[in-house]
């Protein structure tokens, strides 16, 4: 187990190296100039050239890259071209809303999807099963922003139950924090409910045909116990895998949801940074996202060993 863990954590290093090279090159090889963006419409060519020198963009690419990697290795992600603040502190400020949104979304998705998926499998072919499957198809096909605006229209504009947009920090009170998160999380979770419910149904259906389910029934166990204790736990590995994938996909969903609901999180930060060609910020964000990706995967793999005693590393 420990050797495995160490190996997996060490494997993060080459991944990050490749990611940093790709993101560095992609930013510099795509058209658009941060200097002219910052300088604004009224700037002269000299102004822009001066700014480019200031930002270190006049150096040859290999030199820029060497500086970038050197700083990275010291844990220095640099300063934002715009705000002249350390990128790390900017990310730190935006982490809370995004983390809250992601957590809320995934909890809502699991709490709804897993029981309904299980029930749909148990009552295969029933009206409940059909509704769950129907919802799955719709949930998959409708984009997040459409769901977001529809929810805003119904629950905020028409019914006036929820605010139209905005975010409240956790430090200002948990009730307000949760209240403002419900609508965006709901919008974002629809696709994940669809995904997880479908996977749960398939997985449980498969397990329900296994011999040990028949054994459990032959022992005279109640249906609830057969379903929860025997079926669901055995079906868990694929379900957990898909939840892991969901968390990974979530990050792209967050960008859209945050702009629909005007939440000042990492998604908004990423969007602004890319539009403004704020190289250091984009680089740091992408590296952060890939670390999160890799860690989620590792966590899921470790979770397998808890769920299934046959899996050992």
């Amino acid at each position: 187990m420990w050797p495995y863990l160490i190996r997996r954590i060490l494997a993060v290093i080459p991944v990050l190296l490749v990611v940093s090279i790709i993101v560095f090159l992609m930013l510099r090889l795509t058209p658009g100039d941060p200097a002219s963006n910052i300088a604004g419409d009224a700037a002269t060519t000299e102004d822009i050239a001066k700014l480019r020198v200031q930002l270190g963009l006049e150096e040859p690419l290999p030199v820029q890259f060497a500086i970038y990697i050197k700083n990275l290795l010291r844990g220095d992600f640099g300063e934002s071209f715009y705000y002249k603040r350390s990128v790390i502190s900017m990310i730190g400020d935006s982490v809370e809303p995004t983390l809250s949104l992601a957590l809320f979304t995934i909890v809502i998705a699991c709490v709804i999807a897993v029981p309904f998926g299980t029930l749909a499998a148990f009552k295969q072919g029933s009206w409940l099963d059909r509704i769950v499957m129907g919802f799955s198809v719709v949930g998959f096909s409708v984009p997040v922003f459409v769901i977001g605006y529809v929810l805003i229209y119904i629950f905020s504009v028409k019914l006036d139950w929820f605010p139209v947009q905005g975010y409240q920090n956790l430090s200002e009170g948990i009730a307000g924090w949760a209240y403002r998160l419900i609508l965006p999380s709901l919008a974002l979770s629809v696709i994940f409910i669809a995904l997880i419910a479908r996977m749960t149904r398939t997985s449980v259906l498969e397990v329900l045909n296994e011999d040990y389910i028949r054994t459990a029934k032959a022992k005279g166990l109640s249906q609830t116990r057969v379903l929860l204790k025997h079926a669901l736990r055995n079906a868990a590995v694929p379900i957990v895998t898909v939840i892991g994938i969901a968390i990974a996909i979530l990050m792209s969903g967050v960008v859209v949801t945050e702009s629909v609901f005007v939440i000042p999180g990492l998604g908004s930060l990423t969007l602004d940074a890319i539009q403004g060609r704020d190289y250091p910020t984009v680089q740091a964000l992408i590296i952060l996202f890939s670390v999160v990706y890799v860690m989620i995967n590792l966590f899921i793999d470790l979770l397998y060993t808890l769920l299934d005693p046959r899996i050992r590393y």
Partner: peptide
């Protein structure tokens, strides 16, 4: 009645037991 008055054992002991318990 199952297991109290009538018990059953199956062909495949490999698959008839729950692998995660």
């Amino acid at each position: 009645l199952r297991c109290t008055r009538m018990g059953m054992i199956f062909q495949e002991p490999m698959t008839a037991l729950n692998p995660v318990m």
